[in-house]
């Protein structure tokens, strides 16, 4: 395809305008990276908690609210998983309980449970693994009495890494479920 220089400039200008317009509507709010803030770091294995807390993006994002959402959403909105596992680690049980309590006391609130994996393995298989993790969180919450109608699972697999890199630390930070209110 032939593109004139003018058309190229126009395209760049247009895309900047559109991207600026879109940036505030990005669907994912990963929230706090400081996974074990409330749960204590003793039980965390690997470097996830350390990296998460040091490199913390516990900024405006984590407190961001969508229109119509109530205050009091638990601050820790990311829990992490072991490689190839969907078991909820014991140190995240207080986080899970806090979300369960919030959802039960706010029946109009709803949350998207975003499942994520690290980058190893094939992409569509990782989509399935990410869903398995988010499903485990969904099951845990419903067992605690949260209405299934307040919960939705969306798996991103390895498509939306929290951090780049091929170290075990990076992988550990990417294997997560994010509570996206």
């Amino acid at each position: 395809m032939h593109v004139t220089p003018y058309a190229k400039h126009l395209a760049v200008a247009l895309s900047l305008v559109v991207m600026a317009g879109c940036s505030s509507t990005g669907g994912t709010q990963d929230g706090s990276m400081a996974g074990s803030n409330g749960a204590g770091s003793a039980g965390m294995n690997g470097g996830a908690s350390t990296q998460g807390m040091n490199g913390g993006q516990v900024g405006s994002n984590s407190m961001g609210k969508r229109d119509g959402q109530q205050d009091g959403i638990p601050q820790v909105r990311t829990i992490y998983f072991d490689y190839d596992r969907d078991t909820i680690r014991s140190e995240f049980e207080p986080v899970m309980t806090a979300h369960a309590q919030f959802l039960k006391s706010h029946p109009n609130a709803s949350v998207v449970l975003q499942g994520h994996t690290d980058e190893r393995g094939t992409r569509e298989y990782n989509l399935a693994l990410g869903e398995r993790r988010a499903n485990a969180v969904e099951r845990y919450l419903t067992v605690q009495g949260v209405s299934p109608s307040q919960l939705e699972v969306v798996s991103y697999g390895e498509e939306r890494p929290a951090v780049r890199g091929t170290s075990e630390d990076s992988y550990a930070q990417n294997r997560r479920v994010v509570f996206d209110y």
Binding site: A11, S15, V18, G21, C22, T25, G27, R66
Partner: peptide, 22 residues
């Protein structure tokens, strides 16, 4: 509302896509 905005942006980007090269 937010979702609709995303959809709109997606459509706009789709239209412009044919001009980008890599």
């Amino acid at each position: 509302m937010k979702r609709y905005m995303s959809l709109w942006c997606g459509m706009l980007l789709l239209l412009m896509g044919s001009l980008a090269h890599a």
